[in-house]
């Protein structure tokens, strides 16, 4: 996984609540056996009409926002299925950070595994950034994970919380499996004890 470095980019406002994984990437694109190439179909049904033409009004189809790397979103983003195709599609499109007041659990975890940073803010803070994102001139922001700050156009910033371990993995681009295998001794010891009590499992 690539290291998550401090970056600046355009934030797109998507105030709709409960943006679900079927909206992020509908099922006809889950038939792939690859992780890449899904960006084109991100938000497919909102982005294209039934003839396959771009729907001009959709935020990510607008000139300025088509190169967004941040989404400021409504509550409960990513609810629905466990499909990792959702973060794969976001990543492939170029989204590196999503800001909301809440995320669905599985989606939230899946983001970290793919180098995307989901940030949870209070309603008030999120609204400040939503307004920024709405105004083309203010929609540029900087995400500084190391210092846990979102830096606004004007230079002032909003702090955010992040789980220590997840932050460490993102910053260092670490692969979970490699980390876990370092504990293989502990796993083996656990299994030994466990298999005595839980032989039936």
């Amino acid at each position: 996984m690539d290291k998550f470095v401090k970056f600046s980019g355009i934030a797109a406002p998507m105030p709709l609540i409960n943006i679900d994984t079927d909206m992020l990437i509908p099922k006809q694109f889950l038939k792939t056996i690859k992780r890449t190439g899904l960006g084109e179909n991100l938000f497919f049904e909102m982005r294209y009409d039934s003839n396959g033409s771009l729907i001009k009004d959709f935020i990510l189809n607008k000139d300025h926002y088509s190169s967004a790397s941040i989404i400021v979103a409504g509550d409960n983003f990513g609810c629905g299925s466990s499909r990792e195709h959702a973060p794969w599609a976001l990543k492939d499109f170029g989204i590196k950070c999503i800001i909301s007041t809440s995320f669905a659990d599985i989606f939230f975890n899946n983001c970290f595994k793919n180098g995307i940073l989901p940030i949870i803010l209070s309603d008030d803070d999120r609204e400040v950034l939503m307004e920024d994102a709405n105004i083309v001139e203010n929609s540029h922001m900087t995400i500084d994970l190391d210092n846990q700050k979102i830096i606004r156009k004007e230079g002032d910033s909003i702090d955010f919380d992040v789980d220590e371990f997840k932050k460490y993995c993102l910053l260092n681009g670490l692969d979970d499996i490699g980390l876990t295998l370092k504990n293989s001794q502990k796993i083996a010891e656990f299994e030994k004890k466990y298999s005595e009590q839980f032989s039936w499992a």
Binding site: S82, R83, E84, P87, I106, N109, N110, K113, N114, D176, I177, T180, L181, S184, I187
Partner: peptide, 11 residues
């Protein structure tokens, strides 16, 4: 998610 599927498969 699929990354976790891989993690469980491996460990």
């Amino acid at each position: 998610g699929t990354s976790e599927v891989e993690h469980v498969l491996a460990t």
